[in-house]
Amino acid sequence: MASIKTGDTILSIKKATKAFGGLLAVKDLDLELPKGAIQGLIGPNGAGKTTAFNLITGVIPITSGAISFEGERIDGLEAYEVTRLGIARTFQNIRLFTNLSVLDNVRIAYHSHAGYGLGDSLLRSRRYAEKEKELTERAMDFLGIFHLDGLAFEIAKNLPYGQQRRVEIARALACAPRLLLLDEPAAGMNPKETLELMDYIHFIKDRFDLTILLIEHQMRFVMGICEYITVMDFGEEIARGTPAQIQVNERVVEAYLGKGAAKIAAS
């Protein structure tokens, strides 16, 4: 713990527990996320990482414990309210709005701050025209940042896998988050694409002044990009620290490879 110098904490999870019936998917999870960090959340399959994401974003209600974002309690809020507060996420299996254009995918992310309501749209008021134009132009500029503007009118489902990932990340960023949660962003990518993704994540972090929490299984990716790592197993945190500390942590090796392997690794 001492090795992690915390500035402002952006997200703090205290004793978060989620029970599905008798199964504790997440058990007494503590997590402090310093502002501006790239933190990794790793662990074997079924360790409760995605459940932890779902708890943070309000997709599923928490059983006990507390989650606060920028000092404000967010457990108990609806998922859309959490997003509006400034936490955006991507999904393990890409969840784009597949039959809509890339532009519309981004414009949907602008919905909560579109600046006009149903009344304006039904009456086609001047405010509607202005805001809608502004919104579209903003979305195009935004896509331009990611060099996706050439694909703006493509239907999302027609894009290749890697680009769908990029669109999904861009769409999450369009929600203007301060904390971005990435659920296995490198899944299904080849080594070259993974390297590109690492650059991409550094780029968006600096560009949008983000804090990033990510789940990933590709160790090269995690060790290369994360400043801090939390390791989970069976719903509990078993280790935390810098990549170098995690690599030699006995419990981590044990969790991934079994007890014997840990002994071999230690010898």
């Binding site: 998922a79 709005f97 597949t98 809509l100 992310a109 909560s112």
Partner: peptide
């Protein structure tokens, strides 16, 4: 298209 993603978009 996707209720969960829609929620995540605010």
């Amino acid at each position: 298209e996707d209720e969960i993603a829609a929620r995540a978009m605010g």
